[in-house]
């Protein structure tokens, strides 16, 4: 464990807690893409299958349970909670996210480190996580004005992968044979997808005005 990875995990944890806080306290999920939340639930479900077979540390297992629990409960809130589900803008959140799942699955079947069931699903979860934010970014473009909590959620989510890139550089430099091109490229693509959001987020923060994304 290194400081970059810990910072990344804490930022990731903060992003899901911000979202859960928003949904639980104001009983609203306006501006949140259910599609992205469903993709994240699939990402965690396919990535943490090894929770039953291999144990790394209490921290590792605890965080996996937290991420699984939070992502599935956010999807539950947005789909079934009587008050929250009414605030979900279904008409705007129209990204065909299943078109993201299939290519990621095919790619995982083609490019992976080992051709085993767990490894292919794990690789699939990496590819899917890289693109999972797209429905949310599209929704933010459409709804234009972003409330603070949703903006913070996307910002923290992008930041966590940025910290992970520093972690991979650190591990590459300090651990012999730590080379995982698939993870690195997927993580880099994911972070780049946030680039323009980060740009507008900092612009709004610097000029201290409401975050507006160009149409």
């Amino acid at each position: 464990m290194n400081i970059f990875r810990l910072a990344g995990d804490m930022t990731h944890l903060a992003s899901v807690l911000v979202l859960l806080l928003k949904i639980h306290t104001i009983k609203s999920c306006a501006g949140v893409s259910l599609k992205t939340q469903e993709l994240y639930a699939i990402v965690f479900a396919t990535r943490y299958l090894d929770i039953f077979t291999s144990f790394y540390s209490i921290y590792n297992t605890l965080m996996k349970l937290i991420f699984l629990g939070s992502s599935f409960s956010i999807v539950w809130y947005m789909r079934y909670h009587k008050t929250v589900r009414r605030t979900y803008d279904r008409e705007q959140d129209t990204f065909r996210h299943w078109f993201l799942v299939l290519p990621c699955l095919l790619l995982a079947l083609l490019i992976h480190e080992k051709f085993t069931f767990l490894e292919v699903l794990w690789t699939f979860s990496l590819y899917l996580e890289a693109v999972a934010i797209l429905p949310q970014l599209v929704l933010l473009q459409r709804t234009r004005n972003i409330d603070n909590l949703t903006g913070q959620y996307v910002f923290l989510l992008g930041g966590y992968r940025g910290f992970y890139i520093l972690n991979w550089i650190y591990r590459y430099l300090t651990e012999p044979h730590f080379v995982h091109w698939i993870t690195w490229i997927a993580g880099l693509v994911q972070t780049l997808l946030y680039a323009d959001f980060f740009y507008y987020y900092f612009q709004s923060w610097k000029n201290n005005k409401k975050l507006q994304l160009p149409a």
């Binding site: 990875r5 995990d9 990731h12 090894d50 291999s54 144990f55 790394y56 590792n60 965080m63 996996k64 991420f67 480190e113 794990w122 992970y164 972690n167 591990r171 651990e175 730590f178 995982h180 993870t183």
Partner: peptide, 10 residues
């Protein structure tokens, strides 16, 4: 068993 470092991350 030997836990490969690739999957020790979240």
């Amino acid at each position: 068993e030997e836990t490969d470092a690739a999957h020790d991350e979240l």
